[in-house]
Amino acid sequence: MKKNVWTFGVIAGFISIIGFVISTIYPDAIDMEKGMIYGFASMILAFSLIFVAIKNYRDKYNEGIVSFGKAFQIGLYISLIASTIYVGVWLIEYYFILDNFWGKYAEMHQAGLVAKGLSPEEIAQEMVTVQGYKELYDNNPLLAGLYTYIEILPVGILIALIAAAILKRKTKAPQIA
């Protein structure tokens, strides 16, 4: 099981970072709003490997049988490995590569709030919240890392639950002659 989990976890981790690595390499190719969409799409694509990993474990290594608990455990471990890669790469990008991330994010967010027709007071309150995130990230890398886990890990856990429910099998599949 370990090899299966590590292999699919590392591959999923690298798939999950595609969105923000591309936007870092080509900053003008993808605007920040679309970058978020691509980022979440790459997370979902990455975590779809949980289905492949569970099926691979069940059919190749466990004689066609896997319990919900074991299947979920596989998915959870893959989610943790992939999320750790995502968080690590994001923090490296944030602290060493990106220039003025929160300034650019604040501009995009403020433009969206203006487009929604929010009052200047509501917009100002939202911008205080964005400034709070910037201060958190700038002053406490540990909390920044934990906060970044909140962005990706729940997606992986949800997909692990769904995959475990779909792929569990208590008895061997019948052999077709």
Results as ranks from 00 to 15, higher is better:
S48Q: 02
S48G: 04
S48R: 05
L49K: 04
L49Y: 12
I50Q: 02
I50N: 07
F51E: 01
F51D: 06
F51G: 12
F51S: 02
V52Q: 07
V52Y: 10
V52N: 05
A53Q: 08
A53R: 06
I54N: 01
K55M: 05
N56H: 12
Y57M: 03
Y57K: 11
R58Y: 06
D59N: 09
D59V: 07
K60T: 10
Y61R: 13
Y61I: 04
Y61P: 08
N62W: 09
N62M: 07
E63K: 15
E63Y: 13
E63Q: 15
E63M: 07
G64Y: 07
G64K: 11
I65A: 01
I65W: 11
V66E: 04
V66S: 12
S67N: 09
S67W: 08
F68I: 10
G69W: 00
G69M: 05
K70G: 03
K70M: 11
K70E: 12
A71Q: 03
A71G: 14
F72Q: 01
F72M: 10
Q73N: 11
I74N: 02
I74P: 08
I74A: 04
I74Y: 03
I74R: 03
G75R: 03
G75P: 01
G75V: 08
L76T: 10
Y77H: 10
I78W: 07
S79V: 02
S79F: 02
S79W: 08
L80K: 00
I81W: 02
A82S: 12
T84C: 01
T84D: 09
Y86E: 08
Y86A: 03
Y86I: 04
Y86F: 14
V87W: 03
V87E: 01
V87K: 01
G88S: 06
G88V: 09
G88D: 02
V89R: 00
W90H: 11
W90R: 04
L91S: 06
I92D: 00
E93F: 11
E93W: 02
E93R: 10
Y94N: 05
Y95D: 06
F96N: 08
I97E: 03
I97M: 06
L98M: 13
L98R: 15
L98I: 06
D99Q: 14
N100K: 15
F101C: 03
F101Q: 11
F101T: 05
W102D: 00
W102E: 01
G103P: 00
G103C: 02
K104M: 07
A106T: 05
E107V: 14
E107L: 12
M108E: 05
M108K: 13
M108I: 13
H109L: 10
H109I: 09
H109V: 12
Q110W: 00
Q110A: 10
A111L: 14
G112P: 02
L113K: 13
V114A: 04
V114E: 12
V114G: 00
V114P: 09
A115N: 11
A115S: 14
A115F: 07
K116H: 04
